[in-house]
Amino acid sequence: MSFAVGFIAAVAFAVLAPVLQSVARARAWSLAPVIVLAITAVVSHVIGVLFGVLIVPQFRYWDAASIFSFGVMGYVFAFGAVSKSVSLDILLGLAERPDRTAPLSDVVERQVPALFQGRTGILIDGGLVEQIDSRFAATAAGQIMASRIGRLRRAFGIGDTGLYDFGE
């Protein structure tokens, strides 16, 4: 029964999360999509636990939490995979064309630079990068974050190219 409560809470999360994402976008809330997901997860988990305590006499927290966290993480995994993937943006760009083909040069010279500019916009909006005339520089917050990312990459033995290594 505790599993069922966790499952219901996960379904509630899956229903609530897109609604809140849409509301956040429509009302231009200054919350990153991942923060909206985190808030929704905490709220649905707390409601789920309260619901479980009220209706299940021997409510087992970890049974409910395991299936809830698995469901939420599966959702976050899918969300992360489709939200900002460059490869999938290229694929969607091809699939949405009327003839479903595109010259390689068009993707390389037009679509990818457009994606690049979109990402620079995200960094500027997030206060991590500032534009000075036609040039760009990392802000103090951006420098701190870049330094933290660099330390983590070194600790985990990750290179700093961001490219896929097909030699693996």
Binding site: K84, L115, R119, L123, A137, A138, G142, A146, D160, G162
Partner: peptide, 11 residues
């Protein structure tokens, strides 16, 4: 992609 853009600019 976005994180690497930031680290490249900071570097």
């Amino acid at each position: 992609f976005t994180l690497t853009l930031l680290t490249a600019l900071a570097r």
